[in-house]
Design a protein around this nucleic acid. Structure first.
Length: 596
RNA sequence: GGCCCCGUGGUGCAGCGGCCUAGCAUGCGAUCCUGUCAAGGUCGAGAGCGCGGGUUCGAAUCCCGUCGGGGCCGCCA
């Protein structure tokens, strides 16, 4: 090794020891005579002193050094002279007195600061990602990610799980996200797909008797990117045989609870994790991935306002829709402009508009609310008892702002869910030190695909229907619930899983519900059905998203900050410059021709 | 496919029709300096404002297009 110690580990206990350090020049302070240089490696920073009277060679070498040069220094660890200790540095009690010095690599001035925590344009950071890794933010995030994955592996290993790798080149799956395709050279005109998840492969491992499987699995989905979505991402993919919902959920609760307590104990948890049905989540929070760190619950108002003089409300209910509202504490003073902003959010979700109602701050008790003491464009349409009913239902008080939406039931929940999120953010209602995990259960098995005019699986086509809803598959498939569960945290979907179908009969029935013809079923899923013929155990699993979870632990708002080499919104890699054109020879080998 | 924001020396910001032959901080180079730690002092170099077009007597500032980055909707079994 070119070093005997790391820079960051040196303490007063090392005083008197001869050490060899190697690292980067973090910062230099040249006094003309003595030179102080902070040398940095992954473990930290230590001050090295170059005194021409003690070592002419090392002083001359060091006077050539600039930031980010890679150097090796031999010297003695010494206690700093009284009064020159630096309490802000972990190594601040000591310094290394240089005896000899070697320049291992020279460095150009970097395109952005390594030694200062200044915001830098992200595209520049991505282009020079290797320099970004030298900064504490990325370094700490990558180390945190390592510790999280290590914990997961150890945890599952201790519970009898076996890590199995599955291929990256697999068969294209018809449903779901767009596949990334890889052309086959040996079989002209055919393609592999990169896995959206190892779903079928892990189920077949269960059929194979592996019983408990996991994998840190890379997944690929060719869809548009978001702050929490990358085209390739990592899941802790796992599957278990002979289990029911509770077994999977308890495993997840134990794992995440112990992980957070061990790795990031600064976060608070709510245990046991609360459980909400999909219907409850949507009706109370307007989302199937609610941030349950704060209230601002949605309440149904159709029964109170459905016969109102206000045309929009009355028609919404007559047409089978509904009216709902939330009460935002202390926002009755919102200006016209602020209310317009909220209306704009509602419209961006597809609403026609938004009804706001401000309650005068001088209203002491809910029963004192009168039509004269509220401000709203619908005040003149309301009867006093309607207003009273709304105020009581929303548990509103003086100074509150009520936001009311009416129309299509799904839309109303979505609109108010967005507004709830927005107001939670504006009012800082969410405790940043809390990781509010919650299980969402009882999802519908199917959802209607409006564009293509057929049913599609809410989760995936291998999800088992709930036993008691099995008869509904024939009569009212829209009402059948799947044995599907999600784990959400602070408004993010962290995991999705289910118990799976494990008989040919049921699997074929579901495929047919999804609109597949018998030949398609055979062509696309024949291998699964055949596997089920050979004694498939009841099984189920879940797949927590590692990037999103680490993002929450790192208090980042963007998944790219916890991925070493992420892609931009246009799915480009700015470091390697991918995607890129390829040679005609490569194309010919793959039997491909570029059109246009 | 759509909506919104951003793009000024190496970096981060200011300037938003003439006061800009573009300002500040930091970095960079030189020099002085033996106890600093965002070391300090002095001197110096460094951008014509992403790119293209237009409006105007005059554009970094306004308009159009385009490229790049970001947030969002759609999409994400």
């Amino acid at each position: 090794m070119l070093k005997s110690h790391t820079c960051g580990e040196l303490r007063s206990q090392h005083i008197g020891q001869s050490v060899t350090l190697a690292g980067w020049i973090h910062r230099r302070r040249d006094h003309g005579g003595v030179i102080f240089i902070d040398v940095r490696d992954r473990e930290g920073i230590v001050q090295v002193v170059f005194n021409p009277e003690l070592s002419k060679q090392s002083h001359e070498e060091a006077s050539q050094w600039r930031n980010e040069f890679v150097v090796q220094v031999k010297g003695e660890v010494a206690r700093r002279p009284a009064g020159t200790e630096n309490s802000r540095m972990p190594t601040g009690e000591i310094e290394v007195i240089a005896r000899s010095a070697v320049t291992l690599s020279r460095a150009k001035t970097p395109p952005f600061y390594i030694n200062e925590e200044q915001e830098v344009d992200e595209s520049l950071r991505l282009k020079y990602r290797y320099l970004d890794f030298r900064r504490p933010r990325m370094k700490d995030n990558l180390i945190l990610r390592h510790r999280v994955v290590k914990f997961m592996r150890d945890f599952l290993d201790a519970r009898g799980f076996v890590e199995v790798e599955t291929p990256i080149l697999i068969k294209s799956t018809p449903e779901g996200a767009r596949d990334y395709l890889v052309p086959s050279r040996l079989q002209p005109g055919k393609f592999y797909a990169l896995p959206q998840s190892p779903q079928q492969l892990k189920q077949l491992l269960m059929v194979g008797g592996m019983e408990k499987y996991y994998q840190i699995a890379r997944c690929f989905r060719d869809e548009d990117l978001r702050a929490d979505r990358q085209p390739e991402f990592t899941q802790l993919d796992l599957e278990m045989s002979f289990v029911e919902e509770e077994d999977v959920l308890r495993l997840m609760e134990d794992m995440f609870t112990q992980l957070v307590q061990t790795i990031t104990p600064q976060f608070k948890l709510i245990t046991p994790f609360p459980s909400l049905s999909y219907a409850e989540a949507v009706s109370r929070y307007g989302s199937d991935k609610p941030d349950v760190r704060f209230g601002l619950h949605l309440h149904e108002l159709s029964d109170i306002l459905g016969k109102s003089e206000f045309e929009v409300f009355r028609q919404a209910v007559e047409k089978g829709g509904k009216i709902k509202g939330i009460s935002v504490p202390g926002c009755a003073g919102y200006s016209r402009r602020e209310l317009d902003e909220l209306t704009q959010i509602a419209k961006s979700c597809g609403a026609k508009g938004l009804v706001t109602l401000s309650i005068n701050p001088d209203v002491a008790r809910p029963e004192d609310v009168t039509l004269e003491r509220v401000r709203s464009i619908i005040a003149r349409f309301l009867k006093p008892e309607e207003l009273q009913g709304v105020v009581q239902r929303l548990e509103a008080k003086g100074g509150d702002l009520l936001l009311l939406a009416a129309g299509d039931a799904v839309l109303v929940d979505k609109v108010l869910g967005e507004l709830r999120k927005e107001m939670g953010k504006r009012l800082n209602l969410a405790d940043p030190d809390l990781l509010a995990f919650a299980f969402i259960r009882d999802f519908p098995l199917l959802e209607w695909n409006q564009e293509e005019g057929h049913w599609q699986a809410m989760h995936h086509p291998f999800t088992a229907p709930m036993l008691e809803d099995m008869p509904l598959l024939d009569t009212a498939p829209d009402r059948a619930r799947g044995r599907h569960y999600d784990l959400v945290c602070n408004g993010f979907e962290l995991s999705s899983g289910s118990l799976r179908i494990y008989t040919r009969e049921l699997q074929e029935k579901v495929f047919k519900l999804l609109g597949y013809k018998q030949e398609e079923i055979e062509e696309r899923f024949g291998h699964m059905l055949e596997a089920f013929d050979y004694g498939a155990p009841p099984h189920g699993g879940i797949a927590p998203g590692i990037d999103r979870f680490v993002m929450l632990l790192a208090r980042e708002t963007n998944i790219r900050e916890v991925i070493a080499y992420p892609k931009t919104q246009s799915a480009a890699d700015l470091l390697m410059n991918a995607p890129s054109p390829v040679s005609d020879t490569q194309l010919r080998d793959l039997h491909l021709k570029i059109v246009e």
